[in-house]
Design a protein around this nucleic acid. Structure first.
Lengths: 247, 247
DNA sequence: TCATGACTTTGACCCAGATCAATTTGGAAA
DNA sequence: TTTCCAAATTGATCTGGGTCAAAGTCATGA
């Protein structure tokens, strides 16, 4: 039950998130040593956690809520490069300025560690580096999966891919069965979805309407979504139905 | 001079590649212990090093030549998700099947380590995990930079971005000055460039012709390129001229 | 030298998604 | 309850890049 004191190499038993050994219910890095230097910070929806280029004196994980990592070009075009759901790690040991804007899209709570103590502990504790390497490799896989979405999928497939990712992450966390209808809240505005997928918000809106019309999804209000058939949604996303998605 | 025996934490003095502490001239992971278990493999241009899903019993780094990491959808759409230039690492400790197709686009030489001995050594040698974490974080940055290219740049900007990356990597390795004209060979076919950038090969060809016509680049034959003004090229790529690119 | 075939370029046309422009919706505050 | 307004939807039109098709180039080996 008490996942916080599970052996370091053991996966969290509460949250069977694919490819992720830690989750919001656990000590984010599964190490008791870290408990002593952690602290919590919360941010409101819309708040910027940190701007690209700013000094970043901490690392941490998202405990609850959703944040995004974005890049912006001088003319304002922006691309989301990371979607931070509960259990995701933020920050980079060994670098002292943030490379991306980190923005809370819902109210969030983060578990943070000041960078210096964290790095010291990491130097002393080989397991942290292993854990962090594993997490970083998972993130790299997710980024590469996303590159296929950005480079080769149609607008409809892109939307279906995003819904599929959020639905599965949400379902994992909530420990719902993966068969039968799936219900979840979209934690992103249409604009954020557009920035995620390299589209405009109008196209996002149109494609969501189309998926709704075709019965792939049902909506209650603007954010609450029901997926009657997850297999159908994944088919729309252009994925093998057995699910290659790594997020 | 003998970079292979440099202290593990020291950057390679031969190849000042931004964000990368190792290069083709060095022991790929800067650890003498690894010398004892390494072996070399070469592949001819066009050869597949490994298919996605196949068992992968080794990890390694590219020593010379260029390879690519690609993903393919059932209908044949393919997206390159990694460009492996000399010093880049391939393979993932802790996973036994390849996640992507690895294809040699030129003749290549790789320095390999059988996975089991490598993992054993990694468990015993904390520095390897740190080194690998650092490299993986660099790759993640590169992947995210690439996501901006895929999601938000125009075809012309995409081509300029790719040329800019290859030019800089090539220039770094060859230790050329970064001012004045830059000369290099494109190690990719038009089709591979298209798969990198999420374009068609026709669009790639047209945009290269356009950059040539506008004097941004000059070409001798189909692969040999001269960049008279690197700043101009980076401007075309939509980057700040001080160079944000992480590859 | 010529034939071969892979790679590249160029042209003509089309369409998915962008852009511009109104509305409409739904949730929160008064 | 009504008001308000950011977020979302929908329509009309435009265009960058895709698609299909036809040459052009060049390295290779017979």
């Amino acid at each position: 039950m008490n996942a916080a004191v599970a052996a370091p190499t053991q996966k969290c038993t509460e949250c069977p998130i694919r490819h992720r050994a830690v989750c919001a219910h656990c000590n984010p890095l599964e190490l008791q040593e870290l408990d002593e230097i952690k602290y919590y910070r919360s941010f409101e929806a819309g708040q910027t956690v940190i701007w690209a280029g700013d000094k970043m004196g901490f690392v941490g994980t998202v405990i609850t809520g959703v944040a995004t990592l974005t890049q912006t070009m001088e003319d304002g075009r922006t691309q989301m490069v990371g979607l931070l759901l509960p259990s995701d790690f933020v920050g980079r040991p060994g670098r002292d300025t943030a490379a991306y804007n980190v923005i809370a899209t819902t109210d969030i709570v983060m578990c943070c560690f000041r960078k210096k103590p964290f790095e010291d502990l990491m130097a002393r504790t080989p397991h942290i580096a292993h854990r962090l390497l594993e997490m970083t490799l998972d993130e790299l896989d997710a980024a590469r999966e996303w590159m296929l979405v950005l480079g080769r999928k149609t607008a409809r497939e892109k939307i279906a891919s995003l819904l599929s990712i959020v639905a599965r992450r949400d379902a994992s966390i909530a420990k719902k069965a993966t068969v039968g209808p799936l219900v979840f809240d979209l934690p992103l505005t249409r604009e954020a979805m557009a920035d995620y997928l390299g589209l405009t918000l109008e196209t996002v809106s149109r494609q969501i309407s189309a998926l709704k019309k075709d019965g792939v999804i049902e909506m209650q209000g603007k954010r609450h979504i029901t997926v009657p058939d997850m297999g159908r949604l994944m088919e729309e996303a252009g994925d093998d139905a057995d699910g290659g998605f790594l997020v």
